[in-house]
Nucleic acid binder design. Structure first.
Length: 745
DNA sequence: ATCCAGTACGTTTTT
DNA sequence: CGTACTGGAT
């Protein structure tokens, strides 16, 4: 093993890191501050264990996201190739265990995983089915209460026995129906993926002993964010072989609202009395200034274990605290600053991250990025699969794999339209329910249901036939299954023949699904369509982030956990946003918001910028804001305040003043030029459309002839133009695709 | 059964 | 401001 990658890495470890790496047997708690090299420690430790003769199958490593799991696999692979250690998220682990032990747990192993969206629909259906009058509460509220109950390992009866107020009593009722229906349709929600394994480990001694022996060495990253169910899994796997290593940082616990219990990490030493505790406090990521800011801020939290963060890196630049007039100015100018910094050389777009407390803020940024032509990626993984057309196709696939999935049945059955309306479906449900049949089975015998007539009967019969035909091809490659579903369902034809211009876009999206499935299969040809669906459902937001692209990354503070960037912008540091208004009641919640700010700050390696606006548009109304209380909690000597609000002239002056004494000028004077609003920033034609037209222009279309532009909407590639033709009425086109020439502007 | 228009409604964060 | 659902007309 001389000169191996493994030995090279081990040689570079600090003494404390090495101590953690060399610990093999017995419980171990690694308290790892931000940027302390914990990923390196975990991967090295795995490599070390392998080197010491531990068999790869006996090691289980759990990460927070699939992306983190993938990276960790790669790093272990790079050090010691060809060992297949099991590295996954808690949820993926849950799925795999549940499919494997399905029989012994009384589950059907073809279960569908219901996401957030599906769960809310399920709550709605449960409310209707049980005729519970809950107009006072939204399905979302009820769903989240059910989720919370599950996070605390409370079964419906357990919850019901503790329900004292009216709301909980309603929830208790719904919870019971919800669970019953979930079993009927053979679906599990995200919480079930943790809860069932936790129960299995607790109640089934045989399974527990089996798994404990199989996973003799368990590592858990981001342990501060584990909930009761996850704790149950960790505990259950570490009884006979208590070789549990957990890594985390209580100051970065930001998922309390999801049931995470910071006590899991704080009480680890009590849980495992002979646990070894190692603290990694040296930071290898950020400048002294950034670290001091983070440390100063988090010191305001009362419920914490104190720790000392230090770094041997340089002082670095002061952090900017920038005030803008409006949220729009903020977006425009932050993007401009990034463009200027890259234009000056020395920085790439991918060196920058913009971190947000709430997703809603990304919309304004998106238009700013497009306008300034700065490449960006909004890291919100599921957006693509959340599109209606894609969800429709996925519903077909889900129903194919799990014929009992009534929710997917209801989604797919009349898309494209088959003449099956609300009343027909009610009849179908009325038939299926007392017979304990799935809707699909009921549809198969639609001829026995006299209440359903004419067009609907034929529609249901065809649909059942279609699903039966498709069943023959489920074992084909994922992309082939996908293609068949899109064709056989008639979905492709529907979109192709549509006159709605949006439908061509939808067709492209649906076809993209085939490509996605193909790629998925190409990466590993043992993967099935079922794996594909599972993968989509369990994907996290950051999983969709392609860091190899030279783009500015835009993401939430939550998604940014575990990442690092040379330059970080944290926007909208305002009361009500950060800290969020719904967290300001209780101190524990406020402290979590502060930890969130801490996470954001500690993502920065070299430069940190915090910004806020004097006015922000909210729900269509513009309001004055109050600067975030966290800004007041930063050490003044590490901060440089800049006022870019008011008139543009004032902004430039404010800028000059603030830079005059600064030793690290991050921008040249180019910025002051652009901070005065140039009109052409807003009126230049977009790159995506080759022709420019304005409302009122007379244009010629190859097919429809001459017409007048009546409306222009949308941005970028999705820009649409509406034209009233002399012959053929009004039509809308995608500007980029329509073959138009201007007759008279 | 389907489509459109009008209105009610709501926004934290996510596996 | 945007979406999501309801109730009307066809």
């Amino acid at each position: 093993m001389n000169g191996s990658a493994y030995e090279d890495v081990v040689a570079k470890l600090t003494p404390t890191q090495r101590e953690a790496v060399l610990h093999i047997d017995g419980p171990l708690l690694v308290l790892a501050g931000p940027g302390s090299g914990k990923t390196r420690v975990i991967t090295c430790r795995i490599a070390h264990m392998l080197n010491e003769g531990v068999r790869p199958q006996q090691i289980l490593a759990i990460t927070f996201t699939n992306k983190a799991a993938g990276e960790m696999k790669q790093r272990v692979e790079a050090m010691l190739p060809g060992r297949g250690v099991w590295i996954s998220t808690f949820h993926s682990l849950g799925v795999r265990l549940l499919r494997q032990y399905a029989d012994r747990l009384g589950l059907d192993k073809n279960f569908t995983i219901y996401d957030q969206n599906d769960r809310v629909r399920m709550v709605k259906l449960s409310l209707e089915a049980a005729q519970i009058d809950a107009t006072r509460f939204t399905p979302e509220t009820i769903q989240s209460a059910i989720s919370k109950a599950k996070n605390f390992l409370m079964s419906p009866p357990a919850y019901a026995s503790k329900a004292s107020d009216y709301f909980s009593q309603v929830v208790a009722q719904v919870y019971e129906v919800y669970e019953k229906r979930m079993r009927e349709v053979n679906a599990l929600d995200f919480d079930d993926l943790l809860l069932w394994p936790a129960y299995a480990l607790k109640n089934n001694a045989e399974i527990r002993a089996e798994l404990d022996a199989r996973f003799r060495y368990v590592l858990i990253d981001e342990y501060q964010d584990t909930n009761k169910a996850q704790y149950g899994i960790a505990r259950g796997l570490s009884v006979d072989y208590p070789n549990l290593c957990v890594v985390g940082d209580p100051d970065q616990s930001v998922y309390r609202w999801r049931g995470s219990d910071i006590k899991n990490i704080l009480d680890f030493e009590r849980d495992f009395p002979n646990a070894r505790v190692i603290r990694l406090e040296e930071n290898f990521r950020s400048t002294k200034t950034i670290l001091r800011i983070a440390d100063h801020l988090i010191a305001n939290n009362t419920e914490r274990k104190e720790k000392t963060l230090y770094t041997s890196k340089g002082e670095g630049a002061k952090a900017g605290v920038m005030l803008f007039e409006t949220g729009q100015d903020e977006a425009e100018q932050v993007v401009q600053q990034i463009a200027d910094a890259v234009g000056r050389g020395g920085r790439h777009f991918c060196d920058f991250a913009i971190l947000l407390r709430i997703n809603a803020l990304s919309r304004g940024l998106e238009t700013a990025f497009i306008r300034k032509r700065v490449p960006f990626q909004i890291v919100r993984g599921l957006a693509f699969f959340d599109r209606k057309e894609n969800r429709d196709i996925l519903a077909y696939l889900r129903l194919l794999l799990n014929p009992r999935d009534d929710l997917s049945f209801l989604r797919a059955v009349n898309e494209p339209t088959r003449g099956i309306g609300k009343t027909s479906l009610e009849h179908l449900q009325a038939y299926a329910e007392p017979r304990e049949m799935s809707l699909l089975s009921a549809a198969e015998q639609v001829d026995k249901i006299p209440a359903i007539k004419g067009k609907a009967t034929a529609g249901l019969r065809n649909f059942a036939k279609l699903m039966a035909d498709l069943r023959g091809i489920v074992d084909a490659t994922p992309d082939e299954v996908m293609r068949q579903v899109i064709d056989v369902s008639g979905y492709r034809l529907m979109l192709k023949n549509s006159t709605d211009p949006d439908d061509q876009e939808r067709l492209a999206n649906v076809e993209e699904l085939i490509t996605a499935a193909h790629q998925f299969h190409a990466e590993d040809n043992s993967r099935t369509i079922s794996d594909f669906l599972e993968n989509i459902t369990l994907a996290s937001d950051v999983d969709g982030w392609d860091e190899k692209q030279d783009c500015v990354a835009v993401m939430t503070l939550h998604s940014a956990k575990g990442l690092e960037f040379p330059v970080v912008y944290m926007m909208a540091c305002e009361q009500g946003i950060l800290p969020h208004e719904r967290s300001m009641g209780e101190n524990a919640q406020l402290e979590e918001e502060r930890r969130l700010a801490f996470v954001g700050i500690t993502r920065a390696q070299e430069e940190l910028n915090l910004s806020h606006a004097r006015m922000r548009e909210f729900r269509g109304q513009t309001n004055y804001t109050i600067p975030s209380m966290f800004l007041d909690e930063l050490p003044h000597d590490c901060i440089e305040s800049m006022d870019f609000s008011g008139s543009s002239a004032k902004a430039v002056e404010g800028w000059r003043k603030s830079t005059s004494g600064a030793s690290q000028g991050w921008y040249d004077t180019g910025f002051s030029r652009t901070s005065t609003k140039r009109k052409d920033d807003f009126s230049e034609p977009l790159k995506e459309s080759t022709t420019t037209y304005s409302v009122g222009a007379l244009v010629h279309h190859d097919v429809y002839g001459v017409g007048r532009v009546t409306d222009i909407s949308g941005q970028g590639v999705l820009r649409k133009v509406k034209i009233r033709f002399n012959v053929g009425g009004e039509r809308t086109f995608l500007a980029a695709k329509a073959k138009l020439s201007v007759v008279k502007s």
